[in-house]
């Protein structure tokens, strides 16, 4: 039993790492543009499929295709913002949310058009897992957790050490003051999309490594990603790390008592509980 729980905890940390990367993007975008970006899950899928094209089409190893997928997805995110969201920003956050719902559907259709509706995998065959006592650890899982740690650290350094990163925090803190201080908001918004989109791509690739690629992979993760962001206090990227881990662990550990099909329900229940007890999240967000 104890080993089973430990094993589940390992899976929980893995899926928590993936959720964290998605939730950070959602939180950054919310902090600066004040809207819940519903196309974020599908942006993750786009990233995963970009990498798949390089792996399956050009024979790249996955690690080498990741940077291209990140850049490509960042570009897609910025392009969507510039063609659609930018025109709706002055209207209202609600319209942006509805628009992003449409973008989510459109992105998924594009994925289906280009890559087809079927399951895909980066590498066929079974990875030889490492065994530590009765615990099984797949190399992919180690890469996912390490990758998430590196990215989160890099983001932390970006937000606290660079002028652009600080400007992002400033805009999230106090938009009006940022404007009167001369911070170029449009440039910061573009960088925000690039960072959020890039992180989403990595989350998508990790999800593809952990499970498989499918056009609906991103949308299915949207609920847990938002649950993680809300748990951590939406608009607070650091809270997203804690939120992602809690949701990831809870979803995996819950399979001891309930049917694994209902994993999303666990994320949902935690989110609802949080909304009742402490809507501002673990760390004070922007409710």
């Amino acid at each position: 039993m104890a080993t089973d729980l430990l094993q589940l905890a390992i899976y929980g940390v893995v899926s928590g790492s993936i959720l964290t990367l998605g939730a950070i993007g959602v939180s950054l975008i919310y902090g600066i543009l004040r809207f819940a970006h519903f196309a974020h899950g599908d942006l993750m899928a786009v990233g995963a499929y970009f990498a798949f094209s390089l792996v399956a089409g050009l024979g790249f190893p996955l690690w080498a295709s990741a940077p291209f997928a990140v850049a490509g997805t960042a570009l897609v995110a910025v392009a969507i913002d510039q063609t659609v969201y930018r025109r709706l920003r002055r209207v209202s956050p609600i319209i942006l949310l509805i628009s992003s719902f449409g973008i989510a559907i459109a992105l998924r259709s594009v994925v289906q058009l280009i890559w087809g509706p079927h399951n895909q995998v980066y590498a066929s065959g079974i990875q030889l897992p490492w065994r530590v006592g009765d615990i099984v650890i797949k190399p992919d899982h180690v890469w996912i957790v390490l990758g998430a740690i590196v990215l989160v650290t890099a983001l932390h350094l970006f937000l606290t050490r660079t002028k652009m990163g600080k400007a992002m925090r400033a805009m999230s803190d106090n938009m009006d003051l940022a404007l009167v201080s001369g911070i170029p908001s449009e440039r910061v918004i573009v960088v925000t999309w690039a960072v959020g989109g890039g992180m989403a791509a990595v989350a998508g690739i990790f999800l593809g490594m952990d499970t498989r690629l499918h056009p609906v992979m991103g949308w299915s993760l949207l609920l847990p990603v938002f649950a993680a962001a809300i748990l951590g206090g939406i608009g607070r990227p650091y809270g997203a790390i804690a939120g992602g881990m809690v949701i990831g662990l809870a979803m995996e550990m819950s399979t001891v008592v309930i049917d694994p099909t209902y994993k999303p329900a666990v994320a949902f229940a935690l989110m609802v509980l949080m909304l009742i007890v402490r809507p501002q999240g673990l760390f004070k967000g922007n409710p």
Binding site: K166, A170, N174, L177, I183
Partner: peptide
């Protein structure tokens, strides 16, 4: 330069970072 009446600092940033943001341009 303009100092608004209320909400005239970046609350989650340090004093030094606030000053830095003032000099962004």
């Amino acid at each position: 330069s303009y100092v608004p009446q209320e909400q005239n600092v970046f609350p989650s940033m340090t004093v030094e970072e606030n000053l830095e943001m003032g000099a962004f341009i």
